[in-house]
Amino acid sequence: MSLIGEERKRQILGLLNDAGKVHTSDLVNRLGVSSESIRRYLEELEDENRLKRVYGGAVKLTLAHEELSHTKREVLRAEEKRRIGRVAAGLVQDHDVIVIDDGSTCLQMIPFLVYKEHLTIVTNSISGLNLLIDYRNKDMFGGDVIFVGGKIDSRHFRISGTIAEKFMNDIFVNKAFISIDGMMPEQGITSYDADRAILARKFMANSKQSIVLADSTKLGNGTMYKISDLAGIDTIICEEPHPESWADAIARSGIAWLTAE
């Protein structure tokens, strides 16, 4: 590797440290090199255990191996998540009974649901509950809200655990909107947290439709705890099309992939 190449790799790591994620297309423009060169730099940095490559770029190892706090997740890729939330809300009909889980992407649905009529929303998200209460008090949302009881995870502003799972035993919904931490064709959808994975699995089992909301940083990223195989998913909403190499797996699973542009 030339000195120029090493300097470019240092620049990539600097950008990654500031933003948490880098995109190949942005690096091409910023460093003035080809996409093939950027991919080679990222491969070398991954081999050096300095980052983890994901679809479209790379993420910091801390992002790859542990879940960010709720506050940090809220601001990360906020515009992409807003677009995904808008498309997801468009799938909700008046009179639906839905689950919105605690993921920061799923929470972006709520502002687009406020004028729908006769909804019932089940959620384990403390932030989502507070937002829905605020909308109700402002007469912007007139539906019913069911808050899942259980163990409080204060770092992530959510409820999970065995009590929450038992709470859901007798609740059945039309649509479950699920956020994830990772997705790979061979692994399915995954989570950093075992309790969260179990509850998400319960949400999906008790729903007629399971809809996964995932920004593109989750694609190709495998995390520790499995939620479901791809076959358990009806719809995936992402701001990017699925990787071409995933086409067969997506088709075999019968998944509708919606791109939030």
Rank of each mutant, 00 (worst) to 15 (best):
Gly103Ser: 15
Asp94Met: 14
Glu117Met: 12
Thr123His: 00
Leu113His: 00
Glu117Trp: 00
Val114Trp: 07
Val87Gln: 06
Val114Asn: 08
Asp96Arg: 08
Gln108Ser: 11
Lys116Val: 01
Cys106Thr: 15
Asp94Lys: 12
Phe112Glu: 11
Pro111Gly: 10
Gly128Phe: 02
Asp96Phe: 06
Pro111Tyr: 02
Ile126Gln: 03
Ser127Ala: 14
Val114His: 10
Asp96Gln: 10
His118Pro: 00
Thr123Met: 08
Cys106Asn: 13
Asp101Ser: 12
Ser104Ala: 15
Met109Tyr: 03
Val87Ile: 15
Ile110Arg: 01
Gly90Met: 09
Val87Ser: 03
Thr105Leu: 04
Val99Arg: 03
His95Asp: 14
His118Glu: 13
Val99Lys: 02
Gln93Pro: 00
Val97Ser: 06
Val122Asn: 00
Ile121Gln: 06
Ala88Cys: 10
Val87Pro: 02
Gln108His: 12
Ser127His: 07
Ile100Glu: 02
Asp96Thr: 09
Ala89Cys: 12
Gln108Thr: 09
Leu119Trp: 05
Met109Trp: 05
Cys106Ser: 15
Glu117Ile: 08
Thr120Asn: 10
Val87Ala: 11
His118Met: 12
Ser127Gly: 01
Gln93Gly: 03
Ser127Pro: 00
Tyr115Thr: 14
Leu91Gln: 12
Ile121Val: 14
Gly128Cys: 00
Gly128Glu: 01
Gly128Val: 00
Asp101Thr: 09
Gly103Pro: 01
Ser104Cys: 11
Asp101Met: 06
Val114Cys: 09
His118Ala: 14
Gln108Met: 14
Ile100Leu: 15
Ala88Ile: 11
Ala89Gly: 11
Ser104Met: 10
Ile126Glu: 01
His95Thr: 12
Thr120Cys: 15
Lys116Gln: 10
Glu117Val: 06
Val97Leu: 12
Leu129Gly: 04
Leu129Phe: 01
Ala88Asp: 01
Ser125Pro: 05
Ala89Tyr: 08
Ser125Tyr: 03
Leu129Ser: 02
Ala89Pro: 06
Asn124Gly: 09
Asn124Lys: 08
Phe112Leu: 03
Val92Tyr: 01
Gly128Met: 00
Ser127Thr: 11
Asp102Glu: 14
Lys116Asn: 03
Ser104Val: 08
Arg86Trp: 10
Thr105His: 02
Leu113Ile: 06
Ala89Ile: 08
Val122Thr: 04
Ser104Phe: 07
Ile126Tyr: 04
Gly128Lys: 04
Phe112Pro: 02
Ile100His: 02
Leu129Trp: 08
Val114Leu: 13
Leu113Glu: 05
Phe112Ser: 12
Gln93Arg: 13
Pro111Asp: 11
Val122Met: 04
Ala88Trp: 03
His118Tyr: 11
Ile121Phe: 02
Met109Pro: 02
Asp102Gly: 09
Pro111Ala: 12
Val99Leu: 06
